[in-house]
Nucleic acid binder design. Sequence first.
DNA 1: ATACTCACTGAGTGATTACTCAATTTGAGG
DNA 2: CCTCAAATTGAGTAATCACTCAGTGAGTAT
Lengths: 205, 205
Amino acid sequence: MITQFEVPHRRARKTATYTSLVGAARALCQRQGFVGLRTADVAKAAGVSHGAVFAHFPTREMLLKSIVHDLTASLTDRLAELVTLGASLRAVLAAHLACLAEQEDLYRRLLIEAPLLPESFQLAWIGFQSAVSHHLAEAVAIERAGGSLRPIAHHLLFNTWIGLVHHYCINRELFAPGQSVFTARAEMLINHFLSLVSLNPQEPP
Amino acid sequence: MITQFEVPHRRARKTATYTSLVGAARALCQRQGFVGLRTADVAKAAGVSHGAVFAHFPTREMLLKSIVHDLTASLTDRLAELVTLGASLRAVLAAHLACLAEQEDLYRRLLIEAPLLPESFQLAWIGFQSAVSHHLAEAVAIERAGGSLRPIAHHLLFNTWIGLVHHYCINRELFAPGQSVFTARAEMLINHFLSLVSLNPQEPP
DNA sequence: ATACTCACTGAGTGATTACTCAATTTGAGG
DNA sequence: CCTCAAATTGAGTAATCACTCAGTGAGTAT
């Protein structure tokens, strides 16, 4: 008999294994990268047999896809959470960096390896960048109404910001050795970018 | 007897093989990337046996290193050539992009894969970036004397430019599908960047 | 002519790794 | 208790590759 509190053991055990596999894979991707993820390592880290991996994911690629999808979905959600309605441009930039800081290692891996992953992976990746662009556009529209911004095409403004942020992320060891770049350099990056796009140059503090 | 026109056959043949190997490897890296380079493919493309590769390069890694080194050295030289003494900031930016345009495919591969290559490779890579930074700094110093530039720390100015350029390079398919980004978007990138760092915002044409 | 050396050959080796599948364990239903 | 099947096991398979090395043949020296 199944009481109201119980879930069938088998199903519970299966989802526990699944969760364990995804968690282990995520952690390993953070350390070894997506390209370097080995299914045998995932199994070992999850405490199950090698074969168990393929009982839950048809191929290694599907496992990777699941991790990438989870990451970009969670980033998109988190960004929306951090960007409160009507936020200033500065607030949006800060939210963007804060959001990346929370997942910095994994984000960095994806940033570096995305071009080497199968094409289907890029969609999730691009989806998140679009979300960032969208939030930025909204903040810019408000700010522009105030007349404090230079007249810059949105795509250039966005690409300049993304290019700068990703450059710092990729070369993290140069800019913030052993730390989170997105925490250590956030203020500097934001101040610099704002001063670039503002009509009245503000001196950084 | 050896006539005055002849080089010892064996040596000539050897250097011909070497050249052929390097050329084939370069071409393959352009298409399949550095990480995806297979020694058997190199041999086939060069028209020699698989074993011949290892008669000229102790390991695959050394072959890769040789290609990367050649590329960055030639880029550095070419940049110095294109940047004439006392060049304006605009001229340096244009020279930078022109220089990258000439080797765009291979440069893009290196840009994407550099973080995945052994650490020793990064030195050559960073060397070239330093050269760019140096030329930029000289132009900025002159321009600044004219008082037309915003007061921006050089590293931020440089990183903004590099971040932008690399972002466009990596996402070439988005910005200039099937073309050279560095040719198709050079003017736009340069105008945008100059307008960002100039005191008097100029409208792009 | 003879001996020797060098560049090259290409079949073979060993290491790695995603994926398979017959066997086994274990929970669930009767 | 017995039976069925779902979940898991782990040894095995097949493919991929960098790298090796005994052998070959064409130059070169004497």
